[in-house]
């Protein structure tokens, strides 16, 4: 039996992935890339939960990961439908095109 992985490394990796996703959201203007970066951030959050759950050998981390997973699935379904709508209305994928709401 080898030594287990320190929890800090898992959390560090989760933080790194989350930061990369955040940079993606802030830097990219194509709405598909923004959605992908959101997926990265959600995934990093799930990784943090699973890491913490593994540290104390509890199932709660994976349960929270499941909730995040279902939330990501719902978010992607609605988000991609909005992408298609944006494309059909503005003929572009630029997120700034929809910065004004015509209420």
């Amino acid at each position: 039996m080898m030594a287990s992985i320190p929890m800090e490394y898992g959390l560090l990796l989760a933080g790194t992935l989350f930061a990369l996703g955040l940079i993606g959201v802030l830097v990219r203007r194509n709405i598909v890339f923004i959605l992908m970066s959101l997926e990265i951030m959600l995934n990093a959050t799930g990784l943090a939960f699973v890491t913490a759950g593994a540290r104390w050998a509890q199932a709660d981390g994976q349960v929270m990961y499941l909730f995040i997973l279902s939330m990501a699935a719902a978010e992607v379904a609605v988000g991609l439908a909005l992408v298609l709508k944006l494309r059909s209305q503005f003929k572009t994928l630029d997120a700034d095109a929809a910065s004004r709401m015509h209420g």
Partner: peptide
């Protein structure tokens, strides 16, 4: 090699 693998049954 985790402190105690969490089985699917527990989840």
């Amino acid at each position: 090699p985790a402190p105690g693998p969490v089985e699917p049954k527990q989840v």
